[in-house]
Design a protein around this nucleic acid. Structure first.
Lengths: 191, 191
DNA sequence: GCTAGCTTGTTTGGGATCAAATAAAATGGA
DNA sequence: TCCATTTTATTTGATCCCAAACAAGCTAGC
């Protein structure tokens, strides 16, 4: 067994042996496992092909993309759209701002809020970068027809919607009164 | 527009307006974008429902899972199976080892290699944890039938296979002789 | 006004992440 | 037997990432 890649069939055989005694939702397990495999593989390819020559990370690109599409936007909204926490966005925005790709402006009416926007320099970058990025998206999806891509996208959207609509409720139910142990990492209350 | 979540229709309208001038592979773009949205949402749910009570991170769980299924394995193989770099695995394995969930042993014939295995304590944890984890996998996939899950998994596997088979070649072609700028982060040559 | 409570963005702490550099061990050819 | 090459795992440095704590500002109710 050693020194060789495992095939999917072998893996499924091993899983079967180990999990024979458990009742399990096999198809759902396969879906979730492959979402992550695919996400990691795609991200790695896009970072190393389209993004690296422009010295952008995946997340930096996504944030820039959101601002390119939406124009000026509040940070909470950008974080949500980009799928990252607002704390993470603070750092990403700082990096992009230091490269003059993004500008930060105070909200005219509410001193707490901050507006982000893409700079002309950032727009120019996206205009050059986007076609190359999209070409790599097409490359990774080569084995699928356009229709299969849409079907895939719809299935994934349904999962995202399920979590947006019922995820929080579900986690609350699972806790059932008990309170969740705090994350191992994270800021501590000062004494 | 402000203060409200954007709907998918609104987003697609804005994308259309911004990208009207570009030729683009729309379906492939939708597929890739949703892979990442779904992966992030699913991972977040699973970490905060099934994993957090046991103080495991996503990656820690995946590594433990691989060892549970495969038994003793070499580190390079575990990293590949878990979809992380071998450098990352070194850290994860250290963490799991410190919690006595994983054991590290030298290879009997080759002093460079290291064998990882799950401890009895780790097995016990997985036996308790796995059913809960699988239940949450089923929860996130609620809107899809078993058949749709398999179809989804197959589409994603095709993408992974595409990258495994042709990704490296493609990146080489894109570079076309030029060498890729080094990553911004990473170890520096000492002077 | 004042102030308690809410809503923002930022900071913090611990970990995860990658790629390149490095160390250590095995291998092969002279 | 050497020693250069190859093949391992680990270390390193910069960045990403989250959640919880925090600070700053807004808003009701008095």
């Amino acid at each position: 067994m050693s020194g060789r890649r495992r095939s999917i069939a072998e893996t499924e055989q091993a899983v079967q042996e180990r999990l024979g005694g458990f009742e399990l939702q096999r198809e759902q397990m396969a879906a979730v496992a492959n979402i992550h495999r695919a996400a990691a593989a795609v991200r790695q390819h896009l970072e190393n092909s389209a993004l690296r020559p422009h010295d952008l990370t995946w997340t930096g690109f996504v944030v820039l993309w959101v601002l390119w599409i939406w124009g000026e936007a509040e940070t909470w909204s950008v974080a949500e759209e980009a799928g990252i926490s607002k704390g993470t966005l603070t750092g990403i925005a700082r990096t992009l701002e230091s490269r003059h790709l993004v500008a930060r402006a105070p909200h005219p009416e509410d001193g707490r809020r901050v507006l982000l926007s893409i700079t002309p320099e950032g727009e120019e970058l996206m205009e050059r970068l986007f076609p190359a990025f999209n070409a790599e998206e097409a490359f990774v999806a080569t084995p699928l027809s356009a229709e299969e891509c849409l079907r895939l996208a719809n299935g994934l959207r349904a999962i995202v919607a399920q979590l947006e609509e019922h995820g929080e409720e579900r986690r609350r139910q699972l806790l059932d009164g008990r309170d969740l142990a705090p994350r191992r990492s994270g800021r501590r209350s000062r004494p």
